[in-house]
Each structure stands twice: as structure tokens, then as C-alpha cells.
Amino acid sequence: MSHVLAGLGWTGRYLWAGWAGLAGIFCFLAVWQAGHEIYGSFILPSPAETAAAIDALAARPDFWTILSQSAGRALSGFALAAVTGTAAGLVAGYSFAAMRLMKPVVTVMLGVPPIGWIVLALIWFGSSGGTAVMTVVIASAPLSFAGALEGVAKRDRQLDIMAQSFGASWAYRLRTITLPHVLSYLFPAWTTTAGSAWKVTVMAELLSNSGGIGGELATARALFDIPLVTAWLAITVILALATDYGVLHVVREAAERWRSAGLPWGVKR
């Protein structure tokens, strides 16, 4: 019973915290509307016109196919980047030699702008989804790498010693001590990565003419259909927000419930 109540309390707090986020979004919509009233529909369609364009798009038979195409690329790129970046960061955190070896590679990956990788990926993969996935992985993996590296380096050695004194194996210490600690460094990295995964995917699709939302944006631009452009952009933002608040934040709140434990009411976040 106490578990059910705790779960309900947590869900309530999470939903309540959404009001602040919604207020921010409405402020943004107000600024957007003001911009529209100054510059007119051709330069900046209003939020209402954009919503109407989204409504029309949703009625198209291929709408969900387009979305799932981009979503598949963005999310598989994000997952690949999170897994490889985190694994490499963990190895580098434990091994000084590995860290010295990997850090320059990561600097190179961060230093080359995503547009540069797109050009290379276009040559390697052509107009396929591989271009978008590869660009997302290269642009995002260094963030997970840095988060995991920092997390391992700053783990509490005293807890490690405690575990050693009880004969805990290396793998068990990694699972119960290092990983829960590293998670608090990974979530901010993953939140940033998830957002950029959508942006980079759309950019790569647009430049490589490989369908998806980017392909639709290219068509809308060619037709000078500005409400359609803002509609696809709004859809991309909604998808990025859904990934962040609908998935990552929920997982984070569940995994790090212990953080808010012990705090008095009113200072939970």
C-alpha cells in the first residue's frame, strides 16, 4: 500500500512539475505570435497557421511513415551513441592509458562540425538512412563519453573500499556503486544528445535527400510553403520534447528517486 501511495505521489509531483514547462512553452508561443504580427505570414506563419498545417499533414496517408523513418534514424543513432560513448567513457574512466588514447579521438569528433561528417557520410553511405545515423552517432557519442568518464573519475572510493571489504567482485561493484553514480553524469549528457539527435537527423536527411522529415522540409522549402516548413519544424521539436520529457525524464526520475528522499516538502526539485 505504501508503495502504491509513494508511486502516486511521485507521479503527481512529476505531472505538477510539467506546469512550469508548459508556462515556458506558452511564453515562447507568445513571442512567436508577436514575430508573426510584425513580419506577416510569408516570413513567419503564426502558431495557429502552423497548427492548421500540422493538422493537414496528419491527415496525409504517408505522415506516420515519414515520422517513423526519422524517428528510427534519430533514436537508433541516439541509442548507438549512448551505448558506445558510455562504454568507452567507462573504460577510459578505469584505465588511464585508455583515457590518454581516446581523449584526442573525442576532441577530433567534437571539433569537426556535424555538417562536415554529413558530407563524408554522403560519400560513404549515399542517400540512405546510414548518413543520418552515422552523423548522429559521431555528433552525440562524445557527450556520453565525457559524462561516463567524469562519473567514473568522481565515484566515491570509500564506497568502493567498503564493497571490497565484503568481497564484492569487480562486476558487482561496477553495477552497484559505479553505475548508479555515473548515471547522474549521463542523464544530462543523454538529454542533450537526444535533442541534438533529432536536429542532426533532420539536417542529414535534408542534405542527403533521404526522405523523412528532412526530405519533407527540402520539398516545402522548394515550394516556398512556409507554413509547411514551420509545421515540420514544430513536429521535430515536439518529437525531441517527447523523447526528453516522455522517456528520459521519466527514466531519470525513477532511477534517481533516492535523490529527492529526505528533502522536506517544497524543495523536491
Binding site: Q158, I161, M162, S165, F166, T176, I177, P180, W258
Partner: peptide, 14 residues
């Protein structure tokens, strides 16, 4: 063996 440490060293996430 078991060790009782000066500080409790409890895992905050458990």
C-alpha cells in the same frame, strides 16, 4: 570478515 567503518558508507541509492 566484516568491517564497521568510522563513517557509515551506506549506498545512497539503496
Amino acid at each position: 570478515q566484516a568491517v564497521v567503518f568510522q563513517e557509515p558508507r551506506l549506498l545512497p541509492w539503496m
